[in-house]
């Protein structure tokens, strides 16, 4: 117990407080000996900084798309798995497997598959006679964005599916039978029986998904490294660059602060919406 607390305090409470102080100071780790207190200057600079604004915009965009796709897709897969009673182990294993595969390695693999001249995806398109759709996926800003989203979803959808599936399994069988007697089938069953009964799961999945979207880092970092032309630069990546490439610790801390605030706001919003509907 005590060691845990110590680890947590040294590595959490202290850093959090330190970040807070840093956020209001100017401190270049490479050049400055001490930090200087500059008040809210960092936050003012932030909103004049194109780099930061681009990152903020991209993060929001990614969060919007990924959140919607994640929730819809994982619910759909969970429903399919729920309706598949026999021999589902193969599907379960293959759908849940990406959770455990190291994300950075998967990104290398995908960057290889998406490569322009020797990627298997372009080759496949050529083979089935769609060569006009071949594309330099990762160097075009627009498609690079979607590549990041797709790779990210590939790795994350399994976890949401697990959550939804267990939510579905918690609905009592009686309820389904009663609903079916009352004539609720197909879409009606989905809208009136299933969705209202897994509201809690929606909140959990929602919070988890929002967190993952805002904390997006590995995929764009490995796949495109924020490029081409900042089209996949996310806040996390920008903070990383500011802190560990330019060593502007104060400025980076201020940005991290904004990201944390965003995470909190979205989580609370999610919980509030979940509660209101209940």
């Amino acid at each position: 117990m005590l060691p845990t607390c110590i680890v947590l305090f040294v590595f959490v409470v202290y850093p959090v407080c330190y970040t807070f102080i840093l956020a209001f100071s100017k401190y270049n780790f490479a050049f400055d000996r001490n930090m200087t207190f500059i008040g809210v200057q960092n936050f003012i600079d932030m909103f004049k900084d194109n780099q930061f604004l681009a990152a903020l915009k991209n993060t929001m965009e990614f969060t919007l798309y990924m959140f919607v796709i994640l929730v819809v897709l994982s619910l759909a897969i969970a429903l399919l798995l729920f309706n598949k009673k026999e021999h589902s182990w193969f599907f379960r294993i293959s759908i849940f497997m990406p959770i455990v595969v190291p994300a950075s390695l998967i990104c290398i693999l995908f960057s290889f598959m998406l490569a322009d001249n020797f990627g298997i995806i372009n080759k496949f398109l050529m083979d089935i006679g769609l060569s006009r759709f071949t594309h330099n996926w990762l160097t075009d800003g627009e498609t690079a964005k979607w590549c990041v989203i797709i790779v990210e979803i590939w790795g994350k959808v399994g976890f949401c599916t697990i959550l939804f599936l267990s939510g579905l399994q918690n609905i009592s069988v009686d309820l389904f039978e009663a609903a079916e007697l009352d004539g609720a089938i197909g879409w009606k069953k989905l809208v009136y029986i299933i969705i209202p009964n897994i509201r809690e799961t929606f909140v959990v999945v929602g919070i988890w998904a929002i967190l993952q979207c805002l904390k997006l880092f590995v995929t764009p970092n490995v796949l495109t490294n924020g490029g081409p032309a900042n089209s996949t630069l996310v806040m996390y990546q920008n903070i990383y660059n500011t802190a560990f490439n330019y060593f502007e610790m104060g400025y980076a801390a201020a940005q991290a602060f904004v990201l944390t605030a965003l995470v909190m706001i979205f989580s609370i919003l999610n919980m509030k919406i979940g509660k209101k509907e209940a």
């Binding site: 947590l8 850093p15 959090v16 970040t19 996390y236 802190a243 990201l259």
Partner: peptide, 26 residues
């Protein structure tokens, strides 16, 4: 209190604490 602190951690973006950790470890 400590329990809720730990829970709070689950939601905390890593990069916010990584900066001080880096400086500390340095």
């Amino acid at each position: 209190l400590i329990l809720s602190l730990i829970l709070f951690l689950l939601a905390f973006p890593l990069c916010a604490i990584l900066i001080p950790i880096y400086m500390m470890e340095f």
